[in-house]
Computed example of a mutant assay.
Amino acid sequence: MIEVLSSLGCRVLKDEPLSMHCSFKIGGPADFFIEIPNELALSEFLRIISDGRFCILGGGTNILFSDEGYRGTIVRLTGCFKEISVSGDEILCGGGALLSDVLKTACENGLTGLECTAGILGTVGGAVYGNVGRGDKWISAVIKSVEVYKNLKKELINREKAIFGYRKSGFENSIILKVVFSLKKDMKNDSLKEISKNMQKRLETQPLNIPNAGSIFKNPDGFSVGKLIEEAGLKGIYAGKAQISELHGNFIVNTGGAFAEDVLALINLIKEKVKEKFGISLETEIKIIK
């Protein structure tokens, strides 16, 4: 596998520490870590791996890796999968493109519609997969189409046929290759103002300067998880070097040298206390990869 994929331009690493590839800075080694630069190499990888265990990694911003690492192959899409182009009011980008770069491209071309993604780290593929956004604005609102690999076949799925919802997309068993965003001209020049407003709110309410994986739990209908955690008296509590953020209860931060087991201990504590106090069962938003 290593020889074939390397000949196709892939970067193949063995026993690569996953703590170097996620925003939590936590995780043991993966058996293999492969950066795949084009569709030919990706299709060859999928043929070779067959029934083998693998996981597609975006920006690693909403993931908790196990302390023991990953017994299988972690894949990151690079090369042509990071390309971004503009055609009229549309932006075409690869699934591996950084969401922040796409937002920057939209601003530079006077296009509006992606402001709700300001300050959200990670890749386009990860953002579409998790239908990111804030308040009542979600990235799915400006998606025209998504090209995916599913069951070893390429499919083009139009927005009307996609199954988007709160923090979900229907692409759970697919590899997102390309996305087309259908935007609008920023006639009133309001885009930068909204981006600045969204960024300022994130800076004021989220611990962006400490390693974390974003929101740990999904908000139950009609409730704010951060508020529930605060009212349960859990903000600031430690497990090892992991801490429930004092700034925002729905964030767990790595204060330096935290392990996955520390984070999991806090996740379980939050679930237990919130269920006990409010009768609400919380669902994790981050992916826990073992």
Results as ranks from 00 to 15, higher is better:
Ile2Cys: 03
Ile2Glu: 08
Val4Ala: 03
Ser7Asn: 14
Leu8Phe: 02
Arg11Gln: 09
Val12Pro: 11
Lys14Gly: 03
Lys14Ser: 05
Leu18Glu: 00
Pro29Ala: 02
Phe32Leu: 11
Leu42His: 00
Ser43Phe: 10
Glu44Tyr: 01
Phe45Lys: 08
Ser50Ala: 15
Asp51Ile: 11
Ile56Ala: 01
Leu64His: 00
Glu68Val: 04
Tyr70Thr: 03
Thr78Trp: 00
Phe81Lys: 03
Ile84His: 01
Val86Ile: 04
Ser87Trp: 11
Ser87Val: 07
Gly88Asn: 11
Leu99Gln: 02
Asp101Lys: 13
Thr105His: 08
Cys107Trp: 11
Leu114His: 07
Glu115Leu: 07
Ile120Cys: 11
Leu121Asn: 12
Gly126Arg: 05
Val132Glu: 04
Gly135Trp: 13
Ile139Tyr: 12
Val142Tyr: 14
Leu152Thr: 13
Ile157His: 08
Gly165His: 08
Arg167Cys: 14
Gly170Tyr: 03
Ser174His: 01
Ile175His: 02
Leu177Gln: 00
Asn189Trp: 15
Met199Phe: 10
Gln200Thr: 09
Arg202Ser: 09
Pro207Glu: 05
Phe217Cys: 14
Pro220Asp: 02
Asp221Gly: 14
Ile229Lys: 01
Glu230Asn: 09
Tyr238Ser: 06
Ala239Asp: 04
Gln243Trp: 09
Phe251Asp: 07
Glu261Ser: 04
Asp262Phe: 01
Leu264Tyr: 09
Asn268Met: 08
Ile270Glu: 09
Ile270Thr: 12
Glu272His: 11
Glu272Met: 14
Gly279Pro: 05
Leu282Asn: 04
Glu283Phe: 13
Glu285Leu: 00
Ile286Ala: 06
Ile288Ser: 00
